[in-house]
Amino acid sequence: MGESNMLVSILAAAVSSGTPILFAALGELITETAGVMNIGVEGMMLVGAVAGFLASVRTGNLLLGVLAALLAGGLLALLHAFMCIALKVNQIVSGLALTLFGTGISGYLGKSMIGVPLPNHFRSVPLPALSRLPVLGPVLFNHDVLVYLSFVLVPAVWYLFYRTRPGLHLRAVGESPETADALGVNVFRTRYVSVVVGGMLAGLGGAYLSLAYAPSWIENMTAGRGWIAVALVIFAVWNPLRALAGAYLFGGVEAMGFRIQALGLRVPSFFLKMMPYIFTIVVLTVITASSSKQSSRAPQGLGRPYERE
């Protein structure tokens, strides 16, 4: 295989292996922008993965699987929202509990699904014309529909945040709930919606794993991707475009590490295993440091429950 082909395959792998992290990170980004910290992403992804798998196997319909994943992730997030927004529980504690709960319940629900093959899974759908472009075609336009959905979602979230009134309200609620409230924004409702949407996207990230990327159900199959997503949101300083860059970078460097081994270059595998983490942190930190102050900080109301006077 030529060098250019190798590069194309690394870039294509960057997109496909970055996608589950991207979905989860986008969800967490929306949640945190509204001022609620939800570190239960791993749990929500697992619940989404198992719900998507169960529904797809039972009904034979992948779209119903995706719906089930959205629903399951959203439901778990609703629990978190209730704890944090209504009961004003510590958000870190509730998020941790969510991860434990999600891990346990997904394992329980998935017991009957071990070793069951999925009758059908999301396969690559090369986009007409676009997929024939050199380099860009195989890298971006020869994936499954969930990947294309993520392509649409990222700019959509960016547009929502920075170009629409609801997006402005969302950011206001995260920055200063008191001010937003005084301006007539419903802080509680905004936070509920954003936490639930965040959970739905985490569920979708899980379903991408169980229905498209590694079509099967295995307990704990997210293997820490939820935590990577949580960290990524911070390094991407709550910016959807940087979250995309971070997710693909992570996937790409990982894919490159395996190819370095397969080509027989003598680099210790533990070092290669470290690379995606280091690379992503360094690159995103550099981007952040070199961009304007205004856009490089956390929402001021993050993690703080809002109480009306």
């Binding site: 295989m1 794993l209 820490g224 894919a255 397969a262 533990f270």
Partner: peptide, 20 residues
């Protein structure tokens, strides 16, 4: 892969070997 149990990573490693 330095994993026992991470389907996505293990699949990626297999793809790298196939590419080679």
């Amino acid at each position: 892969t330095n994993t026992w149990y991470d389907p996505a990573t293990e699949k990626e490693a297999a793809k790298a070997a196939l590419d080679a």
